[in-house]
Write a protein that binds this DNA or RNA. Structure first.
Lengths: 341, 341
DNA sequence: ATGAAAGCGCTAACAT
DNA sequence: ATGTTAGCGCTTTCAT
């Protein structure tokens, strides 16, 4: 880690720093006798290259920023981000890249994040921007850092060229509602998420795809939380006491809905069938009854985000047009049948 | 960001790079006319210092590694780490330090983490090492990186000098059990966590402090999960059908216990009173009945870990003995009364 | 194929 | 107070 100090160490072993560099980076042009000496010296001395010095010359950082913009406590109420992080971490690790976590608490933090990203400390960014009016995507675009978004950014800027990974929220919602229809249910309500998030809007669209002519009073906007699910369910029940099914925008909201149904003495699924979204195991398997829901592979989404970003980085711009340019990915969902519908 | 390119830019404005360095780093010895010119030039050119170059000379990185070693999915089943991360992130941000997240999936990853830490890429590390036999603390010790642990490391190496932040698990457990005793309960069971974790062991000790002469069959080892809580509760009920209270090592296990009690037709708290630990809101407030539990301020723990580490870094070694040397911190807990006990 | 040497952009020690 | 300069440890070009 010290050119000076190391010269003294490597020298006597007949090894020069540049040879070390070549071997460590797997470059050509070092033949066996020398290469072997280098490897041994590296091993014995426990040599680890200094990343700062390397970055200074290569202009690579082998680091990626993960920006999570979620002032609400929601991030911490469900394991969604934890799972994405795990997927991201695995993929980055496989590519010897580090994960720099940037949590933002509100508007004030945006400038800080923008500065950091623009500062060229990382090779790219993975961004979770959940709200339509979030200024972050714009800031990042301006910072000129290669970026992949988690979830379709609901952001009508230069729309075409943003890269993102998302679940097929709309398709998943259709699966859920069609399942309820298949059960013979006809008065199917929907407790949506916060509609300034594309996932919520897309799931609502999916519901509408199937329930084309439905009474608009069967739809109530909520916020992805258990408490929100409770309120939504109460509202729905007040509006349409003869409701026979509910599709909740996520499992957390569904768990709230279940509680209200129980409280009102309605049986699930006999009186009212319930379907959630996410298949968040600790929630979906623990409710009473266990939740029929739409599974999305969250960890895989994380992995894909990282893969997309890294692929873009490896292939700087030297491609003739679209050839192998990475595209946004929308992952399929699966209906998981449990007892609630 | 380029000495060469910038010289050309700064030069005509009568500004030399070293003056920029001084102003940007808030050093002494630049008077107003110059300082003002520098600030304007920086502003207009959108100059951002190159962190790699800076690190190379200062040997500071303004970055801290957060190591989370938890192969189990448990990390993702409760918001524990998310909350700690938030606390850590806030504190680091306030000190202009970055958070490098290292997630380890198992033994294979330890070498990688050790190498990274030894590589001197970060100024320090915050480590969550939950299991007694975890080789990570040893590795880290050897890497020679300033470290603060999250939770008392159950690790009998050079014990005295490790720095950690923990909740008063033992005291909290005492509060819980005393509360049950105060309710007139006498046959109080304990569903412990995995006893290779100090938090679980400490809570068990707290239980024993109060229930000194209790029947050892009132204690069942479990694993901090809802499923574990279910098994534990069943076991306890089989062993001692006349049980009148349970202290579960965390809220998740308590929620499992509640389910079994309901299933067996036992009323809570009338027949069996239940107390949890953590006060994990999404769990504790959503159970039926809501959970009486011991609150620990998890976010604050994260914040304190970061503060302890940064304080140690600011004050390299230039202190006459223990004077202001930071010490481990054990945070108090609070009993939160809800309906279950 | 191997060795010597020139920087990468910055800070800090030294000159002025 | 301001300007000049020598490295920090590494990669990479250029001699050998």
């Amino acid at each position: 880690m010290l050119t000076k100090a190391w010269a003294a160490e490597f020298g006597p072993r007949g090894v020069r720093v540049n040879a070390v560099s070549r071997v460590v980076n797997g470059a050509e042009g070092v033949r066996e006798p020398l290469a072997e000496r280098v490897r041994r010296a590296v091993e014995e001395l426990g040599y680890v290259p200094n990343q700062a010095a390397r970055s200074l010359v290569t202009r690579r950082h082998d680091a990626v920023a993960v920006v999570i913009a979620e002032p609400e406590t929601r991030v911490f109420a469900d394991p969604f981000f934890a799972l994405q992080l795990r997927g991201i971490s695995k993929e980055l690790t496989a590519h010897d890249s580090q994960l720099v976590l940037l949590l933002t608490e509100g508007r004030d933090d945006h400038a800080r994040v923008g500065r950091y990203l623009a500062g060229g400390h990382v090779d790219g960014a993975l961004v979770f921007s959940l709200h339509l009016d979030d200024p972050l995507p714009g800031l990042i675009q301006r910072a000129g850092v290669p970026t992949v978004f988690g979830g379709r950014p609901g952001w009508n800027g230069s729309a075409g060229d943003v890269l993102y990974v998302d679940s097929d929220n709309r398709g998943g919602a259709r699966q859920a509602v069609r399942h309820l229809v298949g059960l013979g249910r006809t008065r199917i309500g929907h407790i949506s998420g916060a509609l300034d998030q594309t996932s919520a809007a897309d799931r609502l669209d999916g519901y509408r795809d199937v329930m084309a002519g439905a009474n608009p009073r069967l739809i109530v906007e909520s916020d992805f939380t258990p408490a929100g699910g409770e309120h939504g369910m109460r509202e729905l029940l007040d509006r349409c006491p003869d409701l026979d099914a509910v599709f909740a925008a996520n499992d957390l909201a569904a768990s709230g809905a279940l509680r209200v149904l129980r409280e009102r003495g309605l049986r699930v699924p006999e009186d009212v069938a319930v379907v959630g979204f996410d298949d968040m195991l600790p929630v979906a398997e623990q409710t009473e009854p266990p939740l029929t829901t739409v599974r999305q592979d969250i960890e895989e989404m994380g992995r894909l985000m990282a893969r997309l970003l890294l692929r873009g980085l490896d292939r700087p711009d030297t491609d003739e047009d679209a050839e192998a340019a990475p595209n946004s990915v929308v992952l399929p969902t699966t209906l998981i049948r449990r007892a609630s519908a």
